[in-house]
Design a binder for these strands. Structure first.
Lengths: 206, 206
DNA sequence: GTCTATATTTGGATAGAC
DNA sequence: GTCTATCCAAATATAGAC
């Protein structure tokens, strides 16, 4: 991530992602970030204005893509008349799995997301809600259509739990050593299947 | 938590627990902690030596109790010949549920635990491993006895995931507003049941 | 044990030369 | 756009009086 053929901005984002994953938002200093990115300390404020905005941009870079894929998969599932709860859950969960498996830092980003859940940071939650609330609304609507007896707020609440469980599982799996070669991907695939079954059962509960 | 009829040490621990839950270990300063505890800034270093040690003591205060209850429940389950996987899981999970429901800050502590998972802090992990590794060993042995075909390392790995899922669920549930009175406890009870089924299925997977 | 005062370090942010 | 140098605030930690 700190090779020279990426732009300064990209190198900062990559280094920040890694360090936020490891030390947290408060724990990783801009000095650590700029040193790892091999750029000057002042570059962060020049390109991003502030540390808080840098944090937001770390999210934006990945979430734009992730949520676009989710909407894409949701549209596919919604177009089919025979799609069920599991298909909707898959549309939400599979893109996150793919991201966690990519080789350009996606695994680190998933750990950053896990931290965001733990943070309960109001500014961060507002940013996520402002920018990606519409994705949750789309999924909420799709689930609500298939679960007409479930209270709307209860549904939001359960989707939040599912997002949390997914993030945690992906972040934790990131620590596992892939001893026997293919295992890493296989394990995550299985985790996703378990999650989908678990989440579907949870959603169907009265 | 910051009333005068607790000792300085206890007030610091309570305030630290609350603030670590809200802002994280790096994010909560000793100045915030001592102000909330209504004690002098220097008191932390006098009573605990350092911030890192204060963090450790926040864990010790709750985990000693939590793990004692877990061992107690495990012994009860192990004594019965007809106990199954679900009983062992219950011995592990129920004491955490009880803690999350207590009224002296247990809910905040569960959020602190969730942060510890996200931290991946080596010093903290070593502290937890040194002081509570024997509890995981006891559970590992009990599960291994009932799952003789499962690889030992695989089992450790899965128990870790279960601990993570439990912690996350409890921490997240902590945010929910109990609108209709009894709901809070009922919801957590249900979450625990889901978790146990989920975990048991995961453990039985090949 | 508790306080005030302070040493020391570190962090975020910016000014101004290039 | 990038660098050096620096400002200022905040943090951990300690010394020493009470």
């Amino acid at each position: 991530m700190n090779t020279q053929h990426f732009s300064t901005k990209e190198r900062i984002l990559g280094a920040a992602e890694q360090l936020f994953a490891t030390h947290g938002f408060a724990g990783a200093s801009l000095r650590q970030v700029t040193a790892a990115a091999n750029v000057n300390l002042a570059a962060v404020n020049y390109h991003f204005g502030s540390k808080e905005n840098l944090i937001n941009e770390v999210f934006r870079r990945r979430l734009d893509d992730l949520n676009a894929h989710r909407i894409e998969e949701l549209d596919k599932a919604a177009a089919r008349t025979d799609s069920d709860l599991e298909d909707l859950l898959s549309a939400f969960i599979r893109p996150a799995l793919d991201l966690s498996l990519d080789r350009t830092g996606g695994g680190a980003f998933i750990r950053v997301l896990a931290r965001a859940f733990a943070e309960h940071n109001d500014a961060l939650r507002k940013f996520l809600s402002d920018n990606y609330g519409h994705v949750m609304k789309r999924f909420h609507a799709a689930f609500a259509q298939r679960l007409p007896n479930l209270d709307k707020e209860e549904l939001y609440w359960r989707l939040d739990i599912i997002a949390g469980a997914l993030t945690y599982a992906m972040a934790d799996f990131g620590v596992i050593k892939r001893k026997t070669g293919v295992t890493e991907q296989t394990h995550r695939e299985r985790a996703v299947e378990h999650l989908i079954r678990f989440a579907a059962a949870g959603l169907r509960a009265p």
